[in-house]
């Protein structure tokens, strides 16, 4: 299926890039007797949507050297460093923690830093911007709509009892490991947008918050420190809200951090339907204004537990 109006393929075959390529391959063969360096073709989506609104999307092809451990991000940076410095890529941590380098690699949304070329098992690697995110330039997309949805679900703990005006009156919550496990998985979200781009409902409905925002709604709903559950449910219980999810499971399949947004959405829906127990035990606030008495209390509790 053709995605673009016009597929203009430009081959980078200038003398300088070939020269660098040759120099590098000579160096690698001379320095290492067991050299496993190969080269692969990198097809990169190119567009400059902000500076030139009439720019026609097209692919540029680059031949890049790869090793067993080369990631797609490494290959992209190689092409940017030695062949075309104008390639637009967003990246930061290179270790799947920041979620900046999300892109569609060989048809599937993935993190470029987390995808090894050897795992792709193809000679041509096609990199496109994440679908359902507006273009900015090349592989860089606009996340403003995505973050707006994230903000709309109030991704923060709300508890009126925890409104502590004086820092000296420091308090903390009592939360058991079992309570923590109910939401911890969902708090590993790095907001990379892969789930949002894989979701078929997001593809057709601009107002749908998407798997990321909905799983975060569940993350705060399930947190025993949060007590504002009715307002949370009100935000997502709309015609374009949680009911538009049809459980295609693609969000969970592409998530690089094991967040499993589909699980969060279905669990949240079970609470809305009243199937799951909607009564949540709100964590107690522990007053630590007098540290000595707090320690004494803790010691007493420990003694009781030992008995």
């Amino acid at each position: 299926m053709k995605i673009f109006k016009k597929d203009k393929t430009k081959k980078i075959t200038n003398e300088r890039s070939l020269e660098i390529e040759r120099e590098r391959s000579n160096k690698s063969t001379s320095s290492s007797s067991s050299s496993n360096q190969k080269s692969k073709k990198l097809r990169i989506f190119r567009i400059n949507a902000v500076q030139n609104p009439n720019d026609v999307p097209h692919f540029d092809e680059f031949q890049v050297p790869v090793k067993r451990w080369t990631t797609v991000l490494d290959a992209l940076l190689d092409a940017k460093s030695y062949q075309d410095s104008s390639i637009g890529i967003r990246y930061s941590c290179r270790m799947a923690s920041c979620g900046s380098c999300g892109m569609k690699i060989n048809g599937i949304p993935r993190l470029a830093c987390y995808t090894k070329i050897s795992d792709l098992d193809t000679n041509t690697i096609t990199c496109e911007p994440l679908p359902n995110f507006p273009y900015i330039r090349d592989l860089v997309t606009d996340f403003s709509q995505f973050f707006a949805h994230h903000r709309s679900v109030m991704p923060f703990i709300q508890n009126k009892k925890a409104d502590i005006p004086d820092v000296n009156e420091l308090s903390e919550y009592e939360q058991s490991p079992q309570d923590l496990d109910k939401f911890l998985q969902f708090s590993y979200c790095i907001k990379c947008g892969l789930c949002y781009s894989a979701c078929p409902t997001v593809a057709t409905d601009l107002k749908f918050p998407g798997p990321q925002a909905l799983s975060q709604a569940y993350r705060y709903y399930a947190d025993s420190r949060d007590s504002d559950k009715s307002n949370r449910l009100k935000v997502i219980d709309t015609s374009h809200g949680i009911w538009r999810c049809h459980f295609a499971g693609s969000c969970s399949n592409v998530c690089p951090k094991g967040v499993d947004p589909a699980l969060g959405i279905q669990l949240l829906r079970s609470h809305l339907l009243g199937i799951s127990n909607s009564e949540k035990k709100i964590a107690k606030l522990q007053d630590r204004s007098n540290n000595n008495s707090y320690r004494e209390e803790l010691e007493e509790e420990e003694e009781e537990e030992e008995k």
């Binding site: 359902n132 078929p200 997001v202 593809a203 459980f247 399949n253 589909a262």
Partner: peptide, 19 residues
């Protein structure tokens, strides 16, 4: 906008059995 639109669900083979 780069929206996939109906193409988003016309291809069932990329994302696993749930898709």
């Amino acid at each position: 906008t780069n929206r996939e639109g109906l193409r988003g669900w016309l291809n069932p083979l990329t994302y696993g059995w749930e898709r």
